[in-house]
Amino acid sequence: MLTDLPLLQRPAAAAEAGFDAVEFWWPFDSPVPGDREVDAFLRSISEAGVRLTGLNFYAGNMAAGERGVLSSPTRSAEFRSSLETTAGIARLTGCRGFNALYGLPEDGTAASAQAGCAVENLAAAAGAVAGLDGTVLLEPLSGLPAYPLRTAADCFGVIEQVHGSGRQNIALLADFYHLAVNGEDVPALIAGHAAGFGHIQLADAPGRGAPGTGTLPLVQWTEDALAAGYTGLVSLEYQSPSADAFGWLEPYRAAASERRP
């Protein structure tokens, strides 16, 4: 969202559009950014008057196609070095949701070794934010056939292993776009598991545009999740020019205004 704007201008743009909370991918180029970088990021949020409610853990070079490093034995130290910064940001902002991208298979590394590394690093991440009432979020991704976590079941299997390590503060991030594109039975998933979702993200399909640009019943799925016991936040994560990003919300905002006494 709002990616046509410089990163530090996005919190103010979200506030101007009427939102009081934001979430970010890892906003730094390295796992251990300098104090000035962190301070500038925190200042952009506080000056905009919004809350930081979600933050991705360090996930490598996203622009170059990386989608996480936590399952990489050769980059485990790199991932763990970012946890102190993550916890520090959480401590200062009250952020409680932390998305962990698993990572792609590595040539020359056994899948079992990557799986074991992932569980260890997810448990370490959960430990880093546990004292702050933080939850690690794990999501399936689409568009990357080699990505190991493509279904809710894939994520649940990893989550159960982390629970077995003694860390309970990890849950599914239900990104309805990724789930639907990968063939998930989203209504069945909602009916059976919505109360345990750690977070929900929305984008329409095909195209990963705003709700209403595709064919997914995102409003219905969101209502169903709430009715099934989901109590967390619902965030927007679709592709749209900033100028047109939130027009689809106007009818809902108008209806909400009419219902107010």
Score class of each variant (00 low, 15 high):
Leu226Trp: 08
Leu233Val: 05
Glu258His: 05
Trp248Val: 09
Pro241Ala: 13
Ala227Asn: 11
Ala243Glu: 11
Leu236Trp: 11
Trp221Asp: 01
Asp224Glu: 15
Ala254Arg: 14
Ser240Ile: 08
Ala256Lys: 13
Ser242Ile: 02
Ala243Lys: 14
Arg253Met: 00
Ser235Asn: 05
Asp224Asn: 13
Gln239Trp: 11
Glu258Met: 09
Phe246Trp: 07
Leu236Met: 12
Gly247Pro: 15
Pro251Val: 01
Leu233Phe: 08
Pro241Gln: 15
Tyr230His: 07
Asp244Tyr: 04
Ser240Trp: 07
Arg253Tyr: 01
Tyr252Arg: 08
Gly232Arg: 00
Val234Thr: 07
Ala255His: 09
Tyr252Ser: 04
Leu249Glu: 05
Ser242Val: 04
Ala243Cys: 06
Ala256Phe: 01
Trp248His: 15
Val234Met: 08
Pro251Ile: 03
Val234Glu: 03
Ala256Pro: 06
Trp221Ala: 06
Thr231Val: 06
Ala228Gly: 05
Arg253His: 01
Thr222Glu: 02
Ala254Asn: 03
Glu223Asp: 15
Gly229Ala: 04
Tyr238Ile: 08
Trp248Thr: 12
Ser240Leu: 12
Thr231Lys: 06
Arg259Pro: 06
Glu258Pro: 08
Arg260Ser: 06
Arg253Thr: 00
Glu223Asn: 15
Ser240Thr: 13
Thr222Ala: 12
Gly232Glu: 09
Gly232Lys: 03
Thr222Trp: 04
Gly229Val: 07
Ser240Phe: 09
Gly247Arg: 12
Ser242Gly: 07
Ala228Ile: 10
Arg253Phe: 01
Gly229Asp: 00
Pro241Asn: 10
Arg260Glu: 12
Ala228Cys: 12
Asp244Arg: 14
Ser257Val: 02
Leu233Asn: 04
Tyr238Gln: 11
Thr231Asn: 04
Glu237Tyr: 08
Leu226Ile: 15
Thr231Gln: 14
Asp244Ile: 09
Ser257Leu: 13
Ala225Ile: 05
Ser235Cys: 05
Gln220Trp: 09
Arg260Pro: 02
Gly247Thr: 12
Thr222Val: 15
Pro251Phe: 03
Ser235Trp: 08
Glu250Tyr: 02
Phe246Ser: 04
Ser240Val: 06
Thr231Pro: 01
Tyr230Arg: 06
Glu237Gly: 06
Ala228Asp: 00
Asp244Trp: 04
Leu236Gln: 11
Leu236Glu: 13
Leu233Ile: 00
Pro251Ser: 09
Trp248Met: 10
Pro241Gly: 03
Ala227Tyr: 10
Ala254Gln: 11
Ala227Ile: 02
Arg253Ala: 04
Tyr230Gln: 01
Leu236Asn: 12
Ala245Val: 08
Ala255Asp: 14
Ser240Cys: 15
Gly229Pro: 05
Leu249Asp: 07
Gly229Arg: 02
